[in-house]
Design a protein around this nucleic acid. Structure first.
Length: 258
DNA sequence: AGGAGCCTGCGC
DNA sequence: GCGCAGGCTCCT
């Protein structure tokens, strides 16, 4: 699920169960999660109080009362579920946080590519992240300056979390469509009007993303180009195309994205 | 810049 | 079977 809006929603979902609570135990339920958070780290986390929950890009930081941090990333299929008392663990639960209030939060992740890692207070996580796209400070001038540092095409550049923090493969493609920009345009060579349109498109796409899934009430996907190869563009009728950029699928409309 | 690897599930 | 997947890191 996880691009910025979904990560933000997941963090809101578990906040009541975790904020100001003491962690009684962190229980890995998959070898990769046990390896990423070894017994020594789990021991240090046990007994600590969670004093703040923060999102930065697609990362989540659970700040503990001794200055240490649990750093969380959903990767492709991670998600949080707050568990009502006595509810059995959902399928694909990879890690469980148990609190002193007997609340439980499950890290659910079918592909098990997500990560939960411990960072002591003297070595906090160093996240190489660009600006938050929904912040006031994310302006055309800021994006232009960031894009000037890369030689890549615009759509892969939008996936670079150092340029802007939180866009993933879907919303990067959708933003290019909304801005009527071909995804293979050289990022550093875009004219100011295009950058301005792109900033507006990014903010619009992220703001209108529902918290759960990007679908209407009938369960239809709301994407304009993503996963629509061969279907008519909703703006100009041209068939949506799929190309590979930096190993990822990019969907775009060759008719109206220039 | 491009590709492999990490993991598992899904649709063709 | 095979290809693909809303991500990131490390390698050539």
């Amino acid at each position: 699920m996880p691009e910025l809006p979904e990560v933000a929603a997941a963090l809101r979902r578990i906040r009541p169960a975790l904020l100001a609570r003491r962690i009684r135990r962190v229980e890995p339920r998959h070898p990769a999660f046990a390896a990423a958070l070894p017994a020594g780290h789990r021991r240090r986390v046990a007994g600590r109080r969670i004093v703040r929950l923060e999102r930065r890009g697609k990362y989540q930081l659970l700040h503990l009362d001794d200055g240490s941090t649990l750093l969380v990333h959903f990767r492709m299929t991670g998600d949080w579920r707050a568990l009502p008392p006595a509810m059995p663990l959902p399928p694909h639960t990879r890690l469980v946080i148990h609190t002193d209030a007997d609340t439980r939060v499950a890290f659910v992740d079918p592909r098990a590519l997500g990560t939960v890692t411990y960072h002591a207070s003297d070595a906090p996580p160093q996240l190489a992240l660009g600006p938050e796209p929904l912040a006031r400070g994310f302006t055309p001038a800021v994006l232009a300056a960031a894009l000037a540092t890369t030689r890549s095409a615009i759509k892969p550049a939008l996936l670079d979390q150092r340029i802007v923090a939180g866009l993933g493969n879907i919303y990067a493609a959708e933003a290019c469509w909304h801005a009527a920009l071909a995804p293979q345009r050289v990022a550093s060579a875009l004219p100011p009007e295009s950058i301005t349109a792109l900033v507006a498109a990014i903010k619009q796409v992220l703001r209108q993303a529902p918290a759960q899934r990007y679908q209407d009430q009938q369960g239809h996907d709301l994407w304009q180009v993503y996963d629509r190869e061969g279907l008519p563009c909703t703006r100009c009728g041209t068939r949506v195309a799929r190309v590979t950029q930096s190993g990822r699928s990019t969907y775009w409309c060759p008719g109206c994205q220039r």
